[in-house]
């Protein structure tokens, strides 16, 4: 999957989970940039992303992410 395609897929998950059509993620986007991306919604986002890509994350890698790009790096290693 191309990087841009992956970003769009993740963006779709964010729109769905956070119920916000205006979300436009970039690789530099972090939790502070997105309204409602709090700790509870973070859990919902991770569960939804795991489901969409049929992958599983480790808690350590989730904690290490600083932005969406790093999340994408993790996903790419599992596809």
């Amino acid at each position: 999957m191309e990087r841009i395609e992956l970003l769009k897929s993740i963006n779709d998950v964010f729109i769905d989970v956070l119920d916000n059509e205006d979300i436009q993620l970039t690789e530099k986007t972090s939790a502070t940039d997105v309204e409602d991306w709090d700790s509870l919604n973070h859990i919902q986002l991770i569960v939804a992303i795991e489901k969409k890509f049929k992958i599983r994350f480790k808690s350590d890698e989730i904690r290490s992410w600083q932005n969406v790009g790093e999340m994408m790096d993790s996903i790419e290693t599992k596809l």
């Binding site: 859990i43 991770i46 569960v47 795991e50 599983r56 480790k58 808690s59």
Partner: peptide, 9 residues
């Protein structure tokens, strides 16, 4: 049916 260990779900 599913476990997400990373987030305890």
């Amino acid at each position: 049916s599913e476990i997400s260990e990373a987030v305890g779900v």
